[in-house]
Design a protein around this nucleic acid. Structure first.
Lengths: 210, 210
DNA sequence: GCTTATGGATACTGATACTATCCATCACAG
DNA sequence: CTGTGATGGATAGTATCAGTATCCATAAGC
């Protein structure tokens, strides 16, 4: 398959494919001569994955690169691969909220994690985001939402459990890792849009008049 | 309160505040003379909301503007306000996945919505995103995840229900609308980080060895 | 009266995600 | 075997975004 065919197969413009090649998101094709390379099925699948992450999940190109690198390093233990992807996915440096809200949020969140017996690396970036978010919700006066953090955690625990089950059926380690990463990222988009639809429907019933 | 104090109170640099004023995210302060304005508590709260949306939820500035405009138009019915915010929040133009996957995804999603009796505007942007996401997951070979769309919907329905309940306690219509919007957007960040933590914890237990 | 801050306007910056252009091959149809 | 079009690789250009920086005439506060 030449680049033009790859482009047709995935509906990605040739210059964009070249860009992804330059950036190292897509491995180079096999060169048969200095200016002739052939691409295979792996390239088609990889390219589709790249586009799904970028267009659907809005993951920045640099982050996609990190994630793919972590997927391709099959020497790493699975848990480490997942951790790398998580780290790449969670933007660093956030700040908002007052100091009181921050400390309150920190105790609430650490309490929640302890209660549920979750084993969480205190350095996990998602932990910082969670604390910041709870703190922000408090500062914005949404305490009644924050009060039900546990209900959120219940629901989340439920589908995370089954996601892991669903994904564990994958035969090989590589496929497993890929499934986890795709599930993590596109799963988020899936949940977000389901949530929007549910909200729209429930709110329509509830507030017809206001 | 002058701009410097507003800056100190919210930890947002003065030039950034000026930028938000220019962009119309933040209403102008009350002018006491041609180059002296005073800002009040509304500005502090509004600014904190802006930063939470931008930093935590990664909402683009232009979208924040749309959302705030919709919040400020208290003539609109509540459901319309929410719809506007949803529309602003969901990026248009996505494409990926093969045609077979698209049609399969469309039937599955419309089936799900019918089964649950959700009343969803067929033009709702979240609907398109959901279909695209399901289609992408199929194209990427993650059928076992997609097979459990219903389980996701169950969990999502559960916390959406209670979110709406929690938010309904708000006394005034304006506060209700603000709560819905904040809950929708920061709730997503909340759920996403909870999910990451749950995943990390469960996957650590499950795949210690792989 | 002197330093600092302010409102308002305009200009500049760095990052991101592509697009466009060039050019020296290559493939291959006629 | 020659002309047309695609290709790999390199380099340059573009649009958008989210601020920063600079200027200036005025106002505040010591």
């Amino acid at each position: 398959m030449r680049i033009g065919e790859l482009s047709k197969a995935t509906d990605v413009p040739v210059p964009t494919i070249k860009y992804y090649l330059r950036e190292g998101l897509l491995p180079a094709g096999e060169l048969s001569s200095p200016n002739q390379a052939s691409y295979g099925d792996t390239h088609v699948r990889r390219l589709r994955l790249i586009r799904a992450l970028i267009e659907l999940a809005q993951v920045p190109v640099a982050t996609v690169k990190e994630i793919l690198e972590s997927l391709d390093s099959d020497t790493e233990p699975l848990h480490e691969q997942i951790g790398r992807a998580h780290r790449a996915l969670t933007p660093t440096r956030r700040l908002s909220a007052t100091d009181e809200a921050r400390t309150a949020a920190t105790t609430q969140v650490t309490g929640l994690i302890a209660d549920r017996g979750w084993s969480v690396d205190p350095e996990a970036p998602a932990l910082a985001t969670l604390i910041d978010t709870v703190a922000a919700l408090r500062t914005l006066g949404q305490d009644n939402l924050v009060a039900h953090l546990d209900t959120y955690a219940d629901a989340v625990e439920r589908f995370t459990q089954f996601e892991i089950d669903a994904v564990t059926t994958n035969p090989t380690r590589d496929q497993l890792a890929e499934s986890v990463v795709i599930g993590t990222i596109l799963g988020e988009t899936l949940i977000a849009s389901l949530r929007l639809l549910a909200q729209e429907s429930i709110s329509a019933d509830r507030w017809k008049n206001r």
